[in-house]
Design a protein around this nucleic acid. Structure first.
Lengths: 190, 190, 190, 190
DNA sequence: GATGAATGAGTGTTCATTCAT
DNA sequence: CATGAATGAACACTCATTCAT
């Protein structure tokens, strides 16, 4: 029998990301994605159970990679500020190197498909980061406030600033990134 | 000559907001909106040139109202921190009183229709606020950094914290709102 | 506004009957029926809620007409045998004049759509006939046996004999019909 | 040289009957039948030329078995009524013991695939029965009428009465079966 | 012989929009 | 102004069958 073609799966992954970035989630129909991947629409249903599965799987795939990239060289023994700064740099680095993958996750996060993701599983990738914030609170280095508030100031700015639609004047150079991190730190530090 | 029916237009506005909130942007077809508004699909094309126009107009309409609400009792003579805090409170107040309208704008902001909005025109509503920040910079009260960075820390947290999908642990009570503002202020203040 | 086109509905009815007879229920897709009726597939959904509705409605429509035709000149005061014979003749007459409509009902009766019909409502059309049989039993003219058995010998032979696929040697001439009725009568009479 | 796997063929036969009975002819796709039989869809095309062949072969297979079962203990020297009664009892016995196989033939008989069966070959299995009727006619025991009429009253009632969809009040007990046979006999006897 | 991958053609249905009144 | 009828194009998905191994 024929063997599952590794190339086809990768081709589908790339086509999905590319098309969603180009024309958006709504307009990205199964047949258009198939055409972009040079594959029959029916073939998609060999690799994924349905459209939802294709999109969610693509998202989860990317998100896990981001998790790995962000936690690269993670060293919990460093000062808290240094740990968080490293995370920022890693994240911006990832976005700079894979703008298309990042853009896909941004679009996905705001699509109705987002609700179908197993959030708990994904959050595991980011648990070490949460623990850092908690340690900071215990050590009276970080403000002891509602965790949603902390997260909003520590993490969302990265996504907002990296989103070209929202911030088209922000250059992702070293100086700007460091400045932005300084504001985030000033926000949460005691 | 008959006049365009004010009531019908309002009915369409409400139907659009309600349906998009209930079933999402993708599922909100012209005929469903028409049915929700007790109007023929064809009638929509009397008041709006097409579906896009209907949605964009609805968005712009809300956004301008938000602008007014936020600038209510705007007093440029107050201390800068007080001005900004008043803006925060006004914004949260609006979101609390019109959760459906706010939810619509959130959904719209992440739909492909968003790109069709004349951003410059909308930003006029928020110009006074921008001037406040600029004054703060001149007076060495606020950090002199890229404006996108300032905006990210001063304004987006409101939307993130108010978005139930993103922050389901954040209660919009007075204490939390004040705490959140304090973080925003700590971020941008010199 | 445009008015619902009586011609279109009739055209759809005819196309449905014709196509189902020609290529069978399974192969009769919505788009093929639409093409046969010179109508857009979407138009079908104005007149019927879905394919099932189209087929079931067509069937019920025919079945009610058959009911009327069979009970034409129904006279309960006649001798029981004469009443039943009249029904036979009426039924064969209908089948002879509308072979396509009859064929459709035969095909429908053996399709899965059959289960979707409100049987009770349809049986109302045939209630007078049932009462005749019951009267015959009471008057000791007809055998007092399970009603399914009576019906099987009194009514189904008409359909079997009229079904070209099952009986291709049976000519629907007066003599044959009378002979067949004689057998049915011999079967059920005491 | 490898031989066609007897087990696989049987497995396919059972799967076909089971699935068609469970979900109907229309929904029984080749791949579903393959899955039910724990076999690859491609394997079916080793044993049968196509889907049609699979279904028709399954039908003919069953039909021939029915023929054998019905003619079990066939004794042409008995009185004609006794011969026919024995056939009735054999048939009802078969249906009682193999309701699934019988149900399959009923479904098949009303599917478009039915037209593809070589009827003449099948009728050979039932030739002895036909001869009995002819002998009855010659001996002035059975009415000398069109053969389709005789067959309609002698054989079809069995199928009608055994079909749960058509007759849900008929219990296949000895008394009912004998009563039904009596009506059939009354119909055809002189 | 046996298989799962692969596919073009098809399914029922909904869409944004226009037409005729 | 207002409408429901009408539609071609598109949708997600499944089909019977063939291919490469």
């Amino acid at each position: 029998m024929r063997v599952k073609d590794e190339f086809k799966q990768e081709s589908l992954f790339n086509a999905t990301v590319k098309l969603v970035n180009k024309i958006g989630f709504v307009a990205s129909s199964v047949s258009k994605i198939a055409k972009e991947a040079n594959v029959s629409p029916a073939t998609i249903y060999i690799y994924y159970t349905n459209k939802e599965d294709l999109l969610v799987s693509t998202y989860v795939n990317i998100k896990k990679n981001i998790g790995k990239a962000v936690l690269n060289d993670f060293d919990p023994s460093l000062p808290i500020r240094d740990i968080l700064k490293k995370l920022w740099l890693n994240m911006f680095d990832y976005i700079t190197r894979h703008p298309d993958l990042f853009q896909f996750t941004e679009q996905f996060s705001n699509s109705p498909y987002c609700d179908l993701v197993n959030k708990e599983e994904l959050e595991k990738s980011f648990e070490p980061i949460i623990k850092v914030l908690q340690k900071g609170i215990e050590q009276k280095i970080i403000k002891d406030v509602n965790f949603d508030i902390l997260a909003t100031f520590m993490f969302y700015p990265i996504f907002v600033l990296s989103n070209a639609r929202l911030c088209n004047n922000f250059q992702k150079n070293e100086k700007n990134i460091e400045t932005a991190f300084q504001l985030a730190w000033d926000a949460i530090k005691l």
